[in-house]
Amino acid sequence: MKTFTPKPADLTHDWYIIDATDVVLGKLATKTAELLRGKNKPTFAPHADLGDHVIIINAEKIALSGKKMDKVLYSHSGRPGGLREDSYADLLKHNPERIIINAVKGMLPKNRLAKVELNRLHVFAGPDHPHTPQKPTPITVDAVAQQAK
Rank of each mutant, 00 (worst) to 15 (best):
A29R: 02
N102L: 05
A114Y: 09
Y16K: 09
L92M: 14
T140Q: 14
A45N: 14
I62Y: 03
I101H: 07
N40M: 12
K115E: 09
T140P: 04
Y16N: 03
A143Q: 04
G51D: 12
R79A: 07
L11Y: 12
L50Y: 01
K61W: 05
P80W: 03
K67W: 01
F4K: 04
A45Q: 08
I17M: 07
Y74H: 07
L28K: 07
P133A: 10
T30N: 06
P80L: 07
T21C: 08
G82M: 10
K7E: 11
A59C: 01
A125Q: 12
L28F: 08
N119K: 15
I100M: 12
M107A: 10
Q146M: 05
E34I: 06
P42K: 07
P136Y: 04
D19M: 01
N95K: 12
N102C: 08
L11H: 15
W15E: 08
N119V: 11
A103H: 02
P42A: 04
M1T: 09
E85N: 01
K27S: 13
I18Q: 04
P6N: 10
V144I: 15
L121Y: 02
G126Q: 12
I139W: 05
E60C: 04
T21R: 13
A63E: 11
T5E: 08
D22C: 15
V23G: 02
K71F: 03
D70G: 05
A48M: 03
A33Y: 02
G78V: 12
G66Q: 03
D19A: 00
R79C: 00
A63G: 11
D86A: 09
F4E: 01
L64G: 12
G106D: 11
L35A: 03
K2N: 09
D142G: 14
G82C: 10
P133R: 07
A45Y: 05
G126A: 11
V116S: 09
K7S: 13
V23Q: 15
K115W: 00
K110E: 09
V144C: 06
L50W: 01
S77H: 13
L73R: 09
L35Q: 05
I99V: 11
P138F: 07
K31Q: 15
A89V: 02
I55D: 02
L92D: 06
H122C: 12
W15M: 09
S75Y: 06
V72A: 03
S65I: 12
V123Y: 02
P130F: 09
N102F: 08
A33H: 02
A114W: 10
G106A: 11
K67L: 11
D90I: 08
D128Q: 12
I17N: 03
P8R: 09
E117C: 14
I55C: 04
L91S: 13
P96D: 10
K61P: 03
L50E: 04
E117M: 15
F4Q: 04
R98H: 04
D49L: 14
T12M: 10
H47E: 03
K93N: 08
A125G: 11
G82R: 11
H131V: 00
Q147R: 13
A145T: 07
